[in-house]
Design a protein around this nucleic acid. Sequence first.
DNA 1: TTGGCTGCATTTTTT
DNA 2: ATGCAGCCAA
Length: 863
Amino acid sequence: MSEFELLEPGAPFGGPSAGGAPGEGGGDPLLDGLNPAQERAVVSRGPALLIVAGAGSGKTRVLTHRIAHLIRNKEAWPSQILAITFTNKAAAEMRERIEGLLGDGAQGMWISTFHSACVRILRREAERFGYVSGFTIYDSADSRALLKRIIKELDADTYGFTPANAGSKISKLKNELSDADDYAATMNENDPRDRLFVEIFKMYEQELRRANAFDFDDLIGQTVQLFRAHPDVAAVYQRRFRHILVDEYQDTNHAQYSLIRELTRAVAPEEVDRLMPPARERELDASGGIPPASLTVVGDSDQSIYAFRGADIRNIVEFERDFRGAEVVKLEQNYRSTQNILSAANAVIGNNFDRQEKNLWTAEGDGAKIVGFTGYSQHDEARFVAEEIEDLHRAGTAYGDIAVFYRTNSQTRALEELLIRSAIPYRVLGGTKFYERAEIKDAMAYLTSIANPYDPIAWSRLLGAPKRGVGPMAEAHLANFQEAQGISFHEAMLRADEVGALGPKLRGTARQLAELLTRAARMAVGGGATDDSAEEAQPAPVGDVLKLILDETEMIEKLRAKRDPQDDARAENLEELIAVAREFDAKQPGAGLLAFLTEVSLVAAADDLDDTSGTVSLMTMHTAKGLEFKAVFITGVEEGLLPHQMSVDEVGGISEERRLMYVGITRAREQLYLTLASTRATFGDISVAMPSRFLQEIPEGLIDWRQSPGEVTGRGGTESRALNAPRGSSSGYGAGGPRSRGRIDSSVSFGSSGSRGGSGAAAVSEPASGNMQSALEKWRERKRQAKAAQAAGGGFPNMIGGAARDNGDLELASGDRIRHDEYGEGRVTSVTGVGSKRIAHVVFDAVGERKLLVKLAPISKVD
DNA sequence: TTGGCTGCATTTTTT
DNA sequence: ATGCAGCCAA
């Protein structure tokens, strides 16, 4: 491949810097404006370097400048650089910044994620170990689909196995580079569950191989195995990459660590002799081997938040012991946040006992105080967030500079609802990703199957989408035939006539489908030219292949023909997919179907951040890592949520949650909001939420409570103080500045007729002190208002009323007269259910009998 | 075989 | 509350 040609010119290897003495300032533009620690991190040379980079300490700058410095000084060729990041987004940004420093000089560098780098290697070397270069990459949904079949076949569900738990167990093992045999060797022989798991694991591996597919974890693990089993293959990369740089090193797992180890191994003299092309004199050390690559890792153990998926914090903690002669540079000066924000971050993280001391500081000022707010419910909390965002926006902060973080994806609902209502443009990062949508997966299944006609998951999926009368029975017959003949699924369908059990109609359908896939496959590789002319045979653009599939299957038309408005959205998503493919074709002409599939498989949540301009960003705190915003809201700062309930019994769980909180806090440049709710609905039931312990770890002077937890629970006293609520010296509700607090309550009834807007605004416009008395008073006032709102009736039934409306303690009994916004008046015949699930059976005068959820229905009592 | 209905589990974070 | 899975009827 062409990358290797870049090795040609004689390059000095890790030797004394050939040119311009670094470090002497000397107006080197790459060192201008760096602080001493940063400069050291750029110019240091040696076998290994650990850059301990606190949040916001300019590590990307250091990393990019270090690479540019190596190139500029002719210490390395671009092709000898391997830079590994965690997300594609980070990789793209790094490449961009290096190009900014070097121009075209960045050509030929490998700047990618662990996963992309491994795919690249595996595709090139796949044949060596029984795979084909066109292998499919299974995402977790695909893995689960496969596991589901296996568990069913083994009847393992009766032992409590689910695709999810078996999958995560397998994933954990693979991250440790263990296989089924390793597990079998250490398991309890007498435990049937263990033995069954080994069965599942083995069958899973076998099926993956048969499908010519890798799962996510394999990408790393198999690359390591490849290097270990084939030293000559490893030597190619060990020789090639002279400088390896790894970002977010604290989040590497054992497999990734091993990969780095393999890549930074010296090449033994006897391997050198087998190298193609022959090694050059200057590449060799005294023994006749090739010396190990230099390794630079950047990380911050305080930001390690992926232990749950195998990240091993020891990788960074023990780096110095691991890589002899390693130098350590600490970056502690923060260039991102105000001192108040940093103090809060330091205070929180300081409660983790087993950490290296590190203190972020900034030369900038204290900045604004952190704002705290406690809502009565998650809707109340969300409303506060929405209103603050409006205020920020009015005051000149762009929407794109604002982010809202949360612990779990399910928290987006309430937030989205209020943002929509407030007409605030926003986007949700992560969560249900574009490529996880059913219709997109359907369409992608065709492309996957074209690239890999042995993939049963893709094939099975495309059979049923769109519906064409092929059910489980027909699928099983075809699959059996496929397996018995050892042919691809496409061939099996092409020869459907030989499958006795199939009716004539199904045979026809199968053949037709096979012909379409074959035609598309021929298009994808290049017009089906003969071997000799293969070079001229141009592979068709991915967009054209996709278009052919969608046209022939009429997937879009069929969706449009349905009545459900959701299906219109699905059709649009498919149009969007075509656009995505076309864009890919334009950006990487001739890259081909396989490259497109790879890219799609490896896009991460944070990757589609690119076009964040003009919208508020919503994301989990995990997704937020590596990003920064002028204003940040951290929501749901409650016990059970942050720290999450699931983490409390796990060893080290709380510490990890604390680091997550730390990551969240340190994303903010100027303004930080911490919000929570005193009650939260989970599974439809409402439960009381306690403020997070992390709140108490923040010095009280740093937080300006707009509404403290004490005020909201009504049990003010103790909690107020514990939670730094302003005692007496309240900066309470409404005293916060030139804003009209009234909006908070008026928006409760947003969407209903404006008839009671006035009273709502009046009710809370008076400043209140943070004591219990007034908190209670306010709470009562709120209730009164809510009642008044109901009594007023009227309003728009279609507004997202459910959330804002909460009839709460509305008591109904058989015989009561009520008024419904839509149905008019009626009489209650009975009330069933309890609590929030009470249902009123009502006979309406106009429309007859209806069943209504008392809590949420737009109803009120008529006296 | 499909589509609709009912019942149930769901909520930790992701390359 | 919602979405998915499994069951049943057409």
